[in-house]
Each structure stands twice: as structure tokens, then as C-alpha cells.
Computed example of a mutant assay.
Amino acid sequence: MSDALALATLIAAGGPLAPRRALLEAAGNARAALRDPSLWSASGVSGAQAAALRRPDATMLDAVSRWLAAPGHRLLAFNDPDYPPALRHAASPPLALCVAGDPALLWRPAIAVVGSRGPTPAGREHAAEFARAFARAGFVVGSGLAAGIDAAAHAATLAVDGGTVAVLGTGPDVVYPRSNTELHRRIAEAGALVTEHLPGTGPRREHFPSRNRLLAALCLGTVVVEAAERSGAMITARLAADAGREVFALPGSIRNPLARGCHRLIRDGATLVQSPEDVIEQLGAAAAEEAAAHRRELDRPAPAADEWTASNDAAMPGSDHEVLWKVLGFDPTDMDQLIERTGLTPSRLSSMLLVMELEGRVAQQHGRFFRVA
């Protein structure tokens, strides 16, 4: 059994998450975890979980195997180097993530744009306007691929070649709602679909609050465009606040029932915003802090500014920074080419580029990177 299928077996075992996470950490990888039953009881694995680990469901394994065979599909374990640190350090992180698309987007500073499934025309326009501005400012736009505000934010981001992440409450191969079939495909090709659920998992009511929790944790801030007082967007905003993330809300007409949720958030302390620049300005410092956290995550300090000049390449002979700087030119280069040229993992490469962007050494245009100094 491959490590990916062993990991799927751990996920499918169900039950309390903490014992399975402890087992994975103790064993080092999923195959080792399944091979050593002595670790199961030591990690707190229950009898029902142990039975599931001994006899994994063949239909599940076949579905996972077929999904993983497609290009751009990955199953990231909690202890995988490419697992996004924003989730790894969150409360009760998922054991693993199914990712279709570019996993490096999960390491970049992101802003969630959420709201009603049945927005007003103005609400849909506002979602698109804010998403476009965030993408052009270099932020990834996150949402939940629901109808309405979510779909408008994803589509607007793709229209300007920005990075967008859709956090799903289903398996990565299940489109919900069906009206988003084409958008689901486009995000898999040009952005990233991410979920803690295995392929073949259909929509279930209990999955969507956990979907909202992941979205809130992945993003530096959450912007609520339109929302009823009881809605998924309000849950996402509350979870973001609980996680210490920034919450923003757009005000609306007192006669619009979809503005009531936003007004409540503002009364409860969310930041009232009237333009995308209000959000971008406030999250700039958080993006810089995230870059510093990524440096620590990678356990390598960023080089001094003069070490990133072409004339001083020898300052860090053989380092990853030197390798990346040498392959970067003044012509835009996409991530796939940089990964191929440097041999770096997507997570490490993305984090290094983020640091260089924030320090003004590198810029990006339509997902391609180039030197500016």
C-alpha cells in the first residue's frame, strides 16, 4: 500500500482526530503507522478505529487511487512539508488535505470573501470588485465555492489571473452546488481546491461548519459582503475572530435583510469597510508577519538585501536563496518553471518568493514572478 493510500486509511478510520494525529506523528508517516499496531494503543486509537485500520474499505481506496492518478492532485499529511502552516498551527488541524491545483497558494497571504448564496446584484458586484482588487494587490482570494458571493469572488479573481483557493465541504471531486461545475474545473486548473474530505464524499450539513473553520484559518482576514444574521458567512466570521483573524464587513441599506448580518458584525467589533483599500492597508502588516513566520517555519533566515544582488551571488554559495535568485530573471516566470529550475518544493519556493515580494526584490504579474531590483 502506498503512503497516500495508507494516509487515506487513517482519514477514513473516523472517530476522534487527536489519536490519529498522534499516531501519524509518532510513526513519521502513514505506512509506518499502519505497520505498527503497538503504536495504536499508545496513541489512544479506539477499538473501532483499530478495526478500520486493519480492514480499510476497498471502494474508498479505489476512489482515492483514481483521484490521485490525475495530474495536480495531492494528499498532504499533517506532517508533510507542504502542509500549510496556517492550518498546522491552528486549533485541531485536519489530519490531511486533498488539494487539486497549486498547493503553494495555501502558503501565500490570503483574504476570504464570503456572503449570501442569494445576493443582491449590488452585493455580487461588490464581491467581484473587492476580489479583483485583492488579487491585483498580490493576495490570494479564498472562499467556499458556494453559490452567490463565493462564486462571484472566485470568478472575478480568475478573470484577472489572480490566485484563488476554494475550501470545500465535500470531497475534491464532488461539485456542490452543481451550478458551479465549470468554476470548480477552472479553480482546479488555475487555483486550488482544498478539503479535508476524501474523494467521493458528498455534501453533508455537518461538513460545512468545519469547511468554514478551515477557510477562516487559512486567511489573514475575512470580508463579509452580504449576509443574513443566521448564515454560513456569519459562522466563518465568528470562527475567524475566534482564531485571532481580522473580520471586515460592508455596510448596507437598513431595508436590506442581507445587510443585517454585516451590521451585527460591525456592532460586535468588525471593521467597517467601504473600499478594498481599507482591507489591503490593514492587512499589510499581517502579511509581513506571516512572511516572518514562514521564515521560521522553513528554519532559514532571509538573507540581507545585499545578498540578493546579482553581483553578490557568492554571498550564499549553494543556498536555496542563491539558486532561486539565479534562475529569476526580469522576464516573468511561472511557478511550474521555477519549481523545475530550482528543485525546491512548492511550499518553500512560495514562501521565499513572498519574502522577496514584501522586501521589494521581486514582483508578480498574472501569477508569474520577476526581478525588480
Rank of each mutant, 00 (worst) to 15 (best):
residue 1 M to F: 08
residue 2 S to C: 08
residue 13 A to M: 12
residue 15 G to F: 00
residue 24 L to D: 12
residue 25 E to N: 13
residue 27 A to Y: 06
residue 27 A to C: 08
residue 28 G to D: 14
residue 30 A to C: 10
residue 30 A to I: 05
residue 41 S to T: 15
residue 41 S to H: 15
residue 43 S to R: 10
residue 44 G to V: 00
residue 47 G to Q: 08
residue 47 G to K: 01
residue 47 G to M: 00
residue 49 Q to T: 11
residue 52 A to L: 09
residue 52 A to R: 15
residue 55 R to K: 15
residue 58 A to E: 15
residue 61 L to E: 13
residue 61 L to I: 13
residue 62 D to S: 15
residue 63 A to Q: 11
residue 65 S to N: 14
residue 70 A to L: 13
residue 70 A to I: 05
residue 73 H to Y: 05
residue 73 H to A: 03
residue 76 L to N: 08
residue 81 P to W: 08
residue 82 D to K: 00
residue 84 P to I: 11
residue 86 A to I: 04
residue 87 L to T: 06
residue 90 A to I: 01
residue 93 P to C: 08
residue 94 P to M: 08
residue 96 A to Q: 02
residue 97 L to M: 14
residue 99 V to L: 08
residue 100 A to N: 13
residue 100 A to F: 13
residue 102 D to R: 11
residue 102 D to N: 12
residue 107 W to M: 12
residue 111 I to F: 06
residue 112 A to Y: 07
residue 115 G to S: 02
residue 116 S to F: 05
residue 121 P to W: 05
residue 122 A to Q: 12
residue 132 R to T: 12
residue 134 F to S: 03
residue 139 F to H: 11
residue 143 S to F: 09
residue 148 G to P: 01
residue 152 A to N: 05
residue 153 A to R: 10
residue 154 H to K: 03
residue 156 A to C: 11
residue 161 D to S: 14
residue 163 G to Q: 08
residue 169 G to T: 06
residue 170 T to E: 09
residue 171 G to D: 10
residue 175 V to I: 11
residue 180 N to W: 00
residue 184 H to I: 12
residue 184 H to S: 09
residue 185 R to N: 04
residue 186 R to F: 04
residue 187 I to Q: 00
residue 189 E to K: 10
residue 191 G to L: 09
residue 193 L to T: 06
residue 194 V to R: 07
residue 194 V to H: 01
residue 195 T to I: 02
residue 199 P to Y: 07
residue 201 T to E: 12
residue 206 E to F: 10
residue 209 P to V: 02
residue 211 R to W: 01
residue 212 N to R: 08
residue 218 L to A: 01
residue 220 L to E: 04
residue 222 T to M: 04
residue 224 V to C: 02
residue 224 V to P: 00
residue 224 V to K: 07
residue 225 V to E: 00
residue 226 E to K: 07
residue 230 R to E: 09
residue 230 R to G: 03
residue 230 R to C: 03
residue 234 M to E: 03
residue 239 L to S: 04
residue 239 L to C: 07
residue 241 A to G: 01
residue 242 D to T: 06
residue 243 A to R: 06
residue 253 S to D: 03
residue 254 I to E: 11
residue 265 L to I: 11
residue 266 I to L: 01
residue 267 R to A: 14
residue 267 R to Q: 01
residue 267 R to H: 12
residue 268 D to F: 07
residue 270 A to L: 05
residue 275 S to F: 03
residue 278 D to P: 03
residue 280 I to V: 00
residue 281 E to W: 12
residue 285 A to K: 14
residue 285 A to T: 13
residue 287 A to W: 02
residue 291 A to C: 10
residue 296 R to S: 06
residue 297 E to N: 11
residue 302 A to Y: 13
residue 307 E to N: 03
residue 310 A to D: 11
residue 310 A to W: 12
residue 311 S to F: 05
residue 312 N to A: 13
residue 312 N to C: 07
residue 314 A to R: 10
residue 314 A to C: 04
residue 317 P to W: 13
residue 319 S to C: 06
residue 319 S to Y: 06
residue 320 D to P: 04
residue 322 E to M: 09
residue 323 V to W: 00
residue 324 L to W: 03
residue 326 K to A: 14
residue 329 G to H: 10
residue 332 P to M: 10
residue 334 D to I: 07
residue 337 Q to P: 01
residue 341 R to Y: 11
residue 343 G to T: 09
residue 349 L to A: 07
residue 352 M to K: 09
residue 352 M to S: 07
residue 357 E to D: 07
residue 360 G to F: 04
residue 361 R to Y: 01
residue 369 F to I: 13
residue 371 R to Y: 09
residue 373 A to P: 02
